[in-house]
């Protein structure tokens, strides 16, 4: 099972515009919320939100970073593969992959 990508946006004060601070992989929006807070908690954000990458409609698809490209897919496999050896090999992911 491949987890969808959620883009993470945040701002430090109400006056600031939301800015893109990163992305995470999560199986659903609720876990995406938790992962975003726990991954990007180095700042005291006034607001943070997650958006499914699939929900973003780029005006210019050629230029957008939010459109999955062959490179993104490859990167996902390396950085966000489930149950990688270096992170202990998740028993859940291994059994899911069967």
């Amino acid at each position: 099972m491949k987890e969808p990508v959620y883009e993470v946006f945040a701002r430090k004060s109400r006056e600031e515009p939301l800015r893109h601070i990163g992305f995470i992989n999560a199986s659903d929006g609720e876990l995406a919320r938790v992962y975003a807070v726990k991954t990007y908690d180095e700042q005291n954000w006034a607001e943070m939100c997650v958006v499914p990458r699939a929900a973003i409609i780029p005006i210019d698809r050629e230029e957008s970073q939010f459109v999955p490209t062959a490179h993104d897919e490859h990167e996902d496999e390396i950085v966000h593969s489930q149950g990688t050896g270096s992170y202990g090999g998740g028993d859940v992911a291994v059994k899911e992959a069967r």
Binding site: K38, H80, G83, Y87, G88, G90
Partner: peptide
């Protein structure tokens, strides 16, 4: 936390 199924789950467990 090092035996978590995904990187994000491990980071979150570490934070917890």
């Amino acid at each position: 936390m090092l035996g978590s199924p995904t990187l994000e789950a491990g980071i979150a467990a570490s934070s917890m």
